[in-house]
Design a protein around this nucleic acid. Structure first.
Lengths: 138, 138
DNA sequence: ATAGTTGTAACTATAATGAGTACAACGGTG
DNA sequence: CACCGTTGTACTCATTATAGTTACAACTAT
């Protein structure tokens, strides 16, 4: 059973840390909280940076959000860490037999349906913001 | 980028074949339409059988649906082939540092949110029946 | 200059997948 | 009953993404 990569949950963790604490966060400290290797954190930070969600001070350390926590949704994070590309959550088997009525049609019909399924999921992701999460920490 | 297994799309293909054609379908014929190895088909058929969706005649070959195509949803198929278990679409990183406010809370807060996301997706899957798919074959 | 960072490249172990071979068990048909 | 085509499984294998790791260059304040 394949699951969606922990890159996503780690990214949310990282952003929550930055949102909650002030900016004096080094990669090593974050790695300590997430409980993984600092390089894993740097890789994810790189993706978040490329997506325009965070800003990192190289050399000296420290990161800050480039958007308000109210404006960062789980969908933004999910897209940033490249978990799943557009319309590719489901993988459809390739090259069904075109000689066959079903083989001929299944690809397009099923794919269009699965796009809607993925879209339903992503819409739900878009409803949750970073601040909605961190507000629940106690 | 990990995607959901093609077992699922193959299973939908198999069920569509059974729904559209009458019952004289051998595993080898299905394998020809799906364009894969017959053993892959037999494995998936085994899962569909265990889920109570199809009936297979061992020895002689041939399979039939145990429910009407109007009553088989994509969610049924998805569950049958064990693509993703309940609340496990997303994998959350384990053992965050409990010393830290974020590490302490992230697991539960994020998981409950992700359960809702997965649920949104599954509800959409449940809306599409096998007959809604096959009716679009032309 | 130095120390403590970030940014990457390269390598590894692990796990799920999809394909494949082999063979036992089954069930009509001649 | 003997045969043949089928299903049911147990193994094996190559491929792929992941998460972790080591190593080191580049950067920045002191």
């Amino acid at each position: 059973m394949k699951q969606i990569s922990t890159r996503f949950s780690m990214a949310v963790h990282i952003l929550s840390l930055i949102a909650v604490n002030s900016n004096e966060l080094t990669g090593d400290f974050i790695a300590g909280s997430v409980n993984t290797n600092p390089v894993v954190i740097r890789r994810i930070m790189g993706m978040l940076k490329k997506a325009g969600l965070v800003e990192v001070r190289p050399g000296v350390g420290g990161a800050s959000l480039l958007k308000a926590p109210e404006e960062i949704t789980l969908l933004d994070v999910y897209r940033a860490v490249n978990v799943i590309k557009e319309n590719q959550l489901f993988r459809v088997h390739e090259e069904p037999n075109k000689q066959c009525l079903v083989g001929q049609n299944i690809e397009m019909v099923l794919q269009s349906e699965l796009n809607e399924v993925q879209s339903a999921m992503e819409q739900r992701l878009a409803q949750t913001t970073l601040s909605l999460l961190t507000i629940r920490f106690k």
